[in-house]
Design a protein around this nucleic acid. Structure first.
Length: 425
RNA sequence: GGAGAGAUGGCAGAGUGGUUGAAUGCGGCGGUCUUGAAAACCGUUAAGGAUGCAAGUCCUUCCGGGGUUCGAAUCCCUGUCUCUCCGCCA
């Protein structure tokens, strides 16, 4: 959520930012409602002051035996007026809030302006020693590999749950588990994150806090009976851990890492990159979340990306890093890097991680603050998160890049102590 | 699922219709004392909003929402959460 005061003072800047994100600007509506809101506050406050004065006067009058009935009758009228103004004010504020909840975060000034994914900027490419993108044209794709080696079963997944659900079997299941544990351990032991095992169902307030709702209602699974939402990412429960809290400045930055299954409806995306793991309704992800002081958040973003890259370098998986342009940036993000891993069978890059700085957009929605030690005043923190990483897309690259000519999969060395085996055949 | 109790400031904990935004204790901050520290003593210590150049002034907030009243932390209704007992259960 953007600051109403900021919008009031910088309407043109806000309009431009929204436009760069390819979203509709409703800034003028906001300004008009804000004007109305402040007028109503002016009216009620004056009446309330009157009422408060009378309230302290009445007991004194009674004590000295004076008649209070005239004053009480007058206050009855005042109270009715207050009720009326207050309900008008509530309507205006609800309306304002509704619009504000749909206004995206503004892109950072360091983000390139662009319309779509085509305008994203590649900022880095990392390939393992001796690896070439051209070298492996006849790679078998992950679906085929999974089937042959009996480690992945998309057909049975469809039978049990529906299309877009995978079953991992045998060494495939073990490999998935190994990957999750390896990533968690690395972030905990080498990058200084604290492990969180969050709930996988969250309430509506949490979904609003991180920005999934109300705008992306259609993309979210919902358990209506209990008003709970299966998490689309661990970002939601982990960021909301500190919702409505005032943190101590000395406790910042806070680094959390957590595993969760991620549930996504992917409504309306059938047929688009939907083969095998490329688009599924449930996948596993290790997520990193940071709560930091505002002035450090862009440095923290660079470190976050590096932490995710470390995983890929350890696994020796080819990847590139993209800086997203304004038009491809998500609703809540001010700046975002995507990490894409290479799929030799698809002959393209697959998004496996997204690392974003939300500045105070989420913090404002979720009311996450810290006490500034100098001023003693609470301020909003900046929140960041990044996948570290999603196993499904990563698994595609891992299987395809580690296949041998005779159809086996070589398990990356760093995973072997987690799997207990070095080859899948 | 059934029965009961509760939710108050950073924390603990009073307050059951009228100067209570809230006693008291702890913690935090500042000071006196001390070579320094401790102890003791004194002072101070919520958030949000409106208005104003500012100092300030005003409003709101005692879990959320609604109601009664001239007036609500306090009474009524409702939702959420926590605890105790019973039932069920990985």
């Amino acid at each position: 959520m953007l600051d109403l005061k900021f919008i009031r003072e910088n309407p043109e800047l806000v309009k431009q930012g929204i436009q760069n994100k390819n979203e509709k600007s409703r800034v003028d509506e906001i300004l008009a409602l804000d004007e109305k809101r402040r007028q109503l506050i002016l009216n009620t406050d004056e009446l309330k002051m009157k009422r408060n004065q009378a309230s302290s006067q009445i007991p004194m009058m009674k004590k000295s035996g004076q008649d209070t009935s005239a004053l009480m009758a007058e206050m009855k009228q005042v109270s009715d007026m207050i009720t009326d103004y207050d309900s008008q004010l509530k309507n205006v504020e609800d309306e304002l809030d509704k619009i504000l909840m749909y206004i995206p975060n503004l892109p950072s000034s360091t983000v390139p302006v662009g319309k779509s994914a085509a305008d994203n900027v590649e900022v880095k490419r990392w390939l393992p020693d001796g690896f070439s993108l051209e070298s492996d044209k006849k790679a078998t794709d992950h679906v085929e590999l999974g089937k042959k080696l009996k480690i992945l079963d998309f057909e049975r997944g469809a039978k049990v749950s529906g299309s877009g659900f995978a079953v991992y079997m045998g060494k495939g299941a073990t490999l998935e588990r190994a990957l999750i544990n390896f990533m968690l351990d690395k972030h905990i032991n080498e990058h200084g994150y604290k492990e969180i095992f969050p709930p996988f169902l969250v309430n509506r307030d949490s979904m609003k806090g991180t920005g999934q709702l109300p705008k992306m209602e259609e993309d979210m699974y919902a358990i209506e009976k209990d008003e709970l939402y299966p998490v689309p990412t661990a970002e939601v429960p982990i960021t909301n851990l500190h919702r409505s809290e005032i943190l101590e400045e000395k406790d910042l930055p806070i680094y959390y890492v957590g595993y969760s299954a991620c549930f996504r409806r992917e409504a309306g995306s059938y047929g688009k990159e939907s083969k095998g793991f490329l688009r599924v309704h449930q996948f596993n992800k290790v997520e990193m979340v940071k709560f930091v002081k505002p002035e450090t958040s862009y440095d923290e973003l660079e470190k976050l990306v590096k932490d995710a890259e470390d995983i890929l370098q350890a696994l020796k998986i080819p990847y590139r890093v993209l800086m997203l342009c304004t038009g491809d940036l998500s609703f809540s993000a001010a700046k975002c890097y995507d990490i894409e891993t290479w799929s030799p069978a698809e002959n393209k890059w697959l998004e496996a991680s997204s690392c974003s700085n939300f500045e105070n957009f989420q913090a404002r929605r979720a009311n996450i603050r810290f006490r500034n030690e100098q001023t003693k005043k609470p301020e909003f923190v900046h929140t960041l998160n990044g996948s570290g990483l999603a196993t499904s897309r990563l698994m595609v690259s891992l299987l395809e890049n580690n296949q041998t000519a005779d159809g086996k999969i070589l398990v990356p060395e760093v995973l072997q102590k987690y799997t207990g085996f070095s080859v899948i055949e």
